[in-house]
């Protein structure tokens, strides 16, 4: 648990805030796909911490980025932070995405809505380790697409929007690249219906697939057993044994 200092607050879109945090000490090792639990002060109805995925870690600037969708009182209160403010954070939590072993394989990272957040750091880490990641990012409209130029730094980006205002029209699973290119790994984060249809595609094509879940949490440490997901091993804590799961571990009806 640490008090991190807010260095930058920006609004990539009116429904999202990007908060860049720093510390006097070097940030600890953080794996892509891990998350933090943020204490929200000054919000009377926000009692519990808010779990937020790590969007990016900028080692040069010793910065931790959180990309947050403004949903309720807690996240809207976080959006009022200004540079110099302190944020109490428990981190890093959870398991994170796994790294494939063969750097020649083509890895597809699929994100929808604010679910794109952890894929930026994962993409950067993959590129850093010699992989060539591809991104397939979906949103309702072009205004809901986030951080596209940043994603493009780390790999080729394919886009779908539900209204066709950018990229191909439709859902991520309708994108033509899926028919053209044979991917060897898929990682996905987004709304559950999207993750289920991506998982269905992966299963049908025999591609290993990881998904990042966001069940409601309290402790974030595997103590309260509130955020459980049904798996082949029984109920397990998403905060501790996840948030990233191989789809074959889950009991989703695909």
């Amino acid at each position: 648990m640490k008090n991190l200092t807010v260095e930058e607050v920006s609004f990539p879109h009116q429904r999202y805030v990007l908060i860049k945090l720093t510390d006097q000490q070097p940030l600890p090792d953080i794996l892509p796909g891990q998350f933090v639990e943020v204490k929200v002060d000054g919000a009377p109805n926000t009692f519990l911490r808010r779990p937020i995925s790590v969007n990016y870690v900028d080692r040069n600037k010793n910065q931790l980025w959180l990309l947050i969708q403004l949903v309720g009182e807690g996240t809207r209160t976080l959006a009022k932070l200004t540079p110099g403010d302190c944020l109490n954070v428990v981190f890093p939590l959870g398991n994170g995405f796994s790294m494939p072993t063969d750097t020649n394989c083509d890895i597809l990272l699929v994100g929808g809505g604010v679910g794109v957040a952890p894929l930026l750091y994962y993409g950067e880490q993959l590129k850093d380790k010699g992989f060539k990641p591809f991104f397939l990012l979906g949103a309702r409209t072009k205004n809901d697409l986030l951080q596209i130029p940043l994603f493009q730094q780390f790999g080729e980006v394919f886009i779908t929007t539900e209204d066709g205002s950018m990229g191909e029209k439709g859902f991520v699973t309708n994108h033509s690249v899926l028919g053209k290119k044979a991917f060897s790994h898929i990682a996905c984060c987004g709304p559950k219906p999207m993750m289920m249809s991506v998982a269905r595609y992966a299963l049908a094509n025999n591609i290993p697939c990881q998904v990042s879940l966001e069940n409601m949490m309290a402790c974030g440490l595997g103590a309260c057993l509130c955020c459980v997901e049904k798996t082949v091993k029984g109920n397990v804590c998403v905060c501790k044994e996840g948030p990233v799961f191989d789809i074959r571990q889950l009991t989703w009806e695909l």
Binding site: P44, F47, N215, A218, C224, L225, V228, N235
Partner: peptide, 23 residues
Amino acid sequence: REGNDYPRMAETPSGMLNCVGLQ
């Protein structure tokens, strides 16, 4: 005991509800 199904938690004013069910 497997405990109850998810969702097991709800945040409420100054507190929370849980129904973990002795997992």
